[in-house]
């Protein structure tokens, strides 16, 4: 009994202390690296699957051995998959060709591409679908974190 009273007295300050720490408690952050999966749209499922297969083949047999050389984010192969997913096989192929030619350009730095957080030029496929509502413009000095 004596021990219990002593313990209660000892912790009395905790009982009456401020309790709103719950409101401001630190959030649990997950550091798990999320797998980037491109969901094929219903209309272009077949085209996306086909190009995805090609991209996986290229990634396994060429890109992984050659290294991460593309100056853009997403990389050209991923851009191809995304563009086919966004706009279909024919339009997506034109988008990819355009991107590939832009990748060949030796003066890319002057194009005012925004930078992605990994330091690469940010150049997403949705900006090239010719649907102006889909375009998300970032100024050249911006660092994109999305």
């Amino acid at each position: 009994m004596k021990t219990v009273i002593i313990i209660i007295l000892l912790f009395s300050s905790l009982i009456f202390s401020q309790t709103d720490w719950v409101k401001w408690e630190a959030k649990q952050i997950s550091y798990e690296v999320k797998k980037e999966v491109i969901q094929p749209s219903a209309a272009n499922g077949l085209g996306t699957k086909l190009v995805s297969g090609l991209q996986k083949f290229y990634k396994f047999f060429i890109s992984d051995l050659d290294g991460d050389n593309c100056p853009f984010y997403p990389s050209c192969s991923k851009f191809f998959v995304e563009s086919v997913n966004e706009a279909g096989l024919i339009k997506g192929s034109l988008m990819f060709t355009d991107r590939f030619i832009r990748d060949l350009n030796f003066f890319k730095g002057s194009n005012d591409y925004p930078k992605y957080i990994n330091g690469k030029y940010y150049d997403p496929a949705y900006n090239y679908t010719l649907i102006s509502q889909k375009i998300k413009y970032f100024p050249g000095d911006a660092v994109v974190k999305e």
Binding site: L94, T97, I101, Y128, Y137
Partner: peptide
């Protein structure tokens, strides 16, 4: 042919992005 088509397509897309930049500014 692909390069020619891609260039035509890319030019139209480039004009749209240019316009988005003007509007943003």
């Amino acid at each position: 042919t692909l390069s020619y088509g891609g260039t035509i397509y890319g030019s139209a897309a480039s004009a749209q992005i240019y316009n988005a930049g003007i509007k943003f500014n």
